[in-house]
Design a protein around this nucleic acid. Structure first.
Length: 203
DNA sequence: AAAAGTAGCAACCGCGTGCCA
DNA sequence: TTGGCACGCGGTTGCTACTTT
C-alpha cells in the first residue's frame, strides 16, 4: 500500500485555517480521521498538537507574567514535571508553553524565588504574614476555581505595594502565623511556602 | 559586518493509559 | 481477557531570532 507523504515542520496560515474549520465542524476528537478528512497532509498527532497549543480558543499568546512565573515555580516544586497538571492551574496556558518556559528560564529562577520566599517567611514576618493574608483572600476571590487553592507567598510580592485593606482578615503575629498560616492557608497540599518548618509540620 | 554562541519556542517522538469490541 | 485504536503526556529535537565577540 502507498502511504501519502506527510508534511512536517512549521504550519502555514492556510493549514491553520483549514484545521480550525474542520475542528469546528468535527469537534476535538478522532484526530487521525480528522487529519485525513481535512485534506491536510499532516498526522493526526500533529493536528492535535497544533490545535491544543496554538489554535484553541481562549489561549493566551503573550509573555508569561511574573505572577504566572511564581505560580509555575511553586507548582513545579509541588508536582514535579507534571506539566499538564500545572497547566490546569493556569487558564489559557498550555503544558507545552509552561514546559518550555520552565526549561528555558524558570528553572534558573526557581532558587532565587525560593530564597525570596524563605526570607519572606523568616524576616519581617508580621508584615509579610499580613501581606500573605491579603494575597490569599485576593486569590481565593478569583472567580476561576483553579486559583482557589493558592495561599502562600506566590503573589505576596506583587501585592506588597498595594494600599487596599482587607477587613475581617486576621492579623497574625509571627508565632501565630507559623502554625495558623498552615492551618488557614495550607490545608491543601498545594502550600509551598519554603519555610524550614513546613516539612516537619507536614509529617 | 560577520561569524559563533545562546535562548526561546514550535513541533516531533515514543511510551503509557484508557476505552471498546 | 485481550488486542487494537485513539489520545495524552513528558522528553527531545531542530529552527529561528537575538546577542556577543
Amino acid at each position: 500500500m502507498q502511504e501519502e507523504e506527510l508534511r512536517r515542520g512549521q504550519w502555514l496560515e492556510e493549514e491553520d485555517e483549514r484545521l480550525a474549520m474542520i475542528v469546528a465542524i468535527s469537534g476535538e476528537r478522532r484526530w487521525d480521521a480528522l487529519a485525513k478528512d481535512s485534506g491536510l497532509k499532516r498526522s493526526g498527532k500533529s493536528c492535535r498538537l497544533r490545535w491544543l497549543n496554538y489554535l484553541r480558543p481562549n489561549l493566551k499568546h503573550g509573555h508569561i507574567t511574573a505572577d504566572e512565573e511564581r505560580l509555575i515555580i511553586r507548582l513545579q516544586k509541588q508536582f514535579g514535571n507534571k506539566w499538564s497538571k500545572i497547566a490546569k492551574q493556569l487558564p489559557g496556558r498550555t503544558d507545552n508553553e509552561i514546559k518550555n518556559s520552565w526549561r528555558s528560564h524558570l528553572r534558573k529562577k526557581a532558587p532565587v524565588y525560593e530564597q525570596e520566599c524563605f526570607e519572606d517567611n523568616t524576616s519581617n514576618s508580621e508584615q509579610k504574614s499580613s501581606i500573605s493574608n491579603r494575597a490569599t483572600v485576593l486569590n481565593s476571590s478569583n472567580s476561576d476555581d483553579s486559583f482557589s487553592e493558592k495561599g502562600d507567598c506566590y503573589s505576596a510580592d506583587s501585592l506588597a505595594n498595594e494600599g487596599t485593606l482587607l477587613d475581617g482578615i486576621p492579623s497574625w503575629s509571627y508565632e501565630q502565623s507559623r502554625m495558623e498560616h498552615h492551618m488557614y492557608f495550607c490545608s491543601s497540599n498545594l502550600c509551598s511556602c519554603y519555610a524550614p518548618w513546613t516539612s516537619e509540620d507536614n509529617n
